[in-house]
Amino acid sequence: MLLTDIAVEHTLVSKKDGVRQTFLLHPFTDTQRDSLGKFEIVRDIQEPGYKDVKRSTFVTFQQLAELYAKGVLDEFGFSVRMCPGQGTYPGKHPAKKILPSNIKPGSPFDLAVQQVDVSKSATRELRTALLRTSVKL
């Protein structure tokens, strides 16, 4: 399922011939067993003495709205795995940062973000998911 409430434009330049393609990307839910119906969020981790690595975890629609409302995505440098709404993307789907301007005002996702009570602590499931990316809430 595509979350069309969020749209990010992405331009891909071919390394072979320099042809530019522009895609309108949206977050999408995974189709694998353990992460079925969840969105993938990705974070670059830099640990002293080790190579920089990307860590990802999967969150539900409501958890994604909570992370966005609490500013966790921006604070810890998370990106969301995206795919094109139409056509196919050549290669691995990119992870993009979501800015407030990328969310359609008045959309179901925007309303879900507004309804989050930021004074409450995150649920145990969300905290556990974020531990995979070395983030503690």
Rank of each mutant, 00 (worst) to 15 (best):
F28H: 13
F28S: 11
T29A: 06
T29Q: 10
T31S: 13
Q32E: 15
Q32M: 11
S35L: 12
S35V: 15
F39G: 06
F39T: 09
E40H: 08
E40Q: 12
V42M: 07
Q46L: 09
Q46G: 06
P48F: 14
G49Q: 06
Y50K: 15
Y50W: 13
Y50R: 15
R55K: 13
T57I: 00
T57E: 02
T57P: 00
F58R: 02
F58K: 02
F58D: 01
V59M: 08
T60K: 11
T60L: 08
T60H: 10
T60C: 10
Q62D: 15
L64H: 03
E66M: 06
E66L: 03
E66I: 05
L67I: 02
A69V: 01
A69Q: 03
G71T: 00
G71P: 00
G71A: 02
L73G: 00
D74M: 11
E75F: 14
F76V: 00
G77C: 11
G77F: 07
G77S: 05
F78D: 02
F78Q: 05
S79G: 14
V80I: 07
V80L: 04
M82R: 00
M82V: 05
M82C: 02
P84H: 04
P84A: 05
P84M: 03
G85W: 05
T88G: 14
T88V: 11
T88P: 05
Y89W: 07
P90M: 01
G91R: 04
H93Q: 14
H93L: 08
K96D: 05
K97I: 13
I98C: 11
I98T: 10
L99F: 13
L99C: 09
P100H: 07
P100C: 08
I103E: 03
I103Y: 03
P105D: 05
P105S: 09
G106A: 03
